[in-house]
Simulated scan of single mutants.
Amino acid sequence: MQQITHQVEQCFRLAESYFKQSFQRPELVLSSRKSKVAGSANLSQWRLRFNAHFYQQQPQHFLAQTVPHEVAHLVCHAVYGRVKPHGVEWQQIMQQVFNCPAATTHNYSLEQLQLSSYEYRCTCQVHQLSVRRHNKVLKGAAYKCRNCQQPLFQC
């Protein structure tokens, strides 16, 4: 957690230098929950949550890419208010302030997470839906196969 805290601080210092203003430091959480999300920024609670599994998997990449990605969300909100999460303002902060590519997704391995999934079928194949999508189906959502365009139903 010490390295993540240090990198968050470095990002905020770069942002303060660039924007000529100070920023409140967020609460930091290192989560061990099984999740596909490498990090998240909670704007209303001014909190950054980082996934310990992905940090342990590739610590240098995590510090260089994921930490600035999440800090950029908070800085963007503080400077510009409510804007698109990965819009032009956020991209500007990633590229011009943090000198990072404005990537919106990660490529960490999900294999070891062993996330739960549910089998659904269409007319052409079997699909694995995440717990989140399965729960949405239970609440009335419907999904279609991208290949045959037929609705998915639980096996």
Score class of each variant (00 low, 15 high):
104 T>G: 10
97 V>A: 10
90 W>P: 00
65 Q>K: 05
50 F>P: 02
97 V>K: 03
63 L>G: 03
61 H>S: 04
55 Y>A: 09
84 K>D: 06
50 F>L: 02
99 N>Q: 10
103 A>R: 08
93 I>G: 12
95 Q>R: 13
70 E>M: 04
80 Y>G: 06
61 H>R: 09
62 F>K: 05
59 P>I: 01
87 G>N: 09
85 P>N: 14
86 H>G: 06
55 Y>T: 04
64 A>G: 03
94 M>P: 12
66 T>F: 02
72 A>P: 15
97 V>C: 11
68 P>E: 10
97 V>F: 13
73 H>G: 04
104 T>C: 14
75 V>R: 01
104 T>H: 12
81 G>W: 09
67 V>C: 08
70 E>W: 08
76 C>L: 12
86 H>L: 15
99 N>A: 08
53 H>V: 14
104 T>R: 15
102 A>T: 04
75 V>L: 00
58 Q>N: 15
79 V>A: 07
98 F>W: 11
58 Q>D: 04
103 A>N: 12
73 H>W: 07
74 L>G: 00
102 A>C: 07
97 V>Y: 06
99 N>H: 11
72 A>Q: 10
94 M>L: 11
90 W>T: 01
80 Y>N: 08
69 H>N: 00
89 E>R: 10
87 G>C: 15
57 Q>D: 13
91 Q>F: 14
76 C>W: 00
102 A>L: 12
51 N>C: 15
50 F>K: 03
52 A>L: 14
63 L>A: 07
74 L>F: 02
89 E>I: 04
90 W>A: 02
96 Q>N: 07
74 L>I: 00
62 F>Q: 05
106 H>G: 01
100 C>I: 15
61 H>I: 03
57 Q>W: 11
102 A>W: 02
67 V>H: 05
65 Q>T: 00
73 H>A: 03
81 G>R: 11
81 G>S: 15
61 H>E: 12
62 F>C: 07
61 H>V: 09
103 A>W: 13
66 T>I: 13
82 R>C: 04
80 Y>S: 04
75 V>H: 04
85 P>D: 07
72 A>S: 12
78 A>I: 01
104 T>N: 10
68 P>A: 05
102 A>G: 10
92 Q>P: 15
78 A>W: 02
97 V>R: 01
88 V>W: 12
86 H>A: 09
53 H>N: 06
70 E>P: 05
65 Q>N: 03
55 Y>R: 03
101 P>L: 07
75 V>G: 01
102 A>R: 05
67 V>G: 01
100 C>P: 07
74 L>R: 01
56 Q>H: 08
100 C>Q: 05
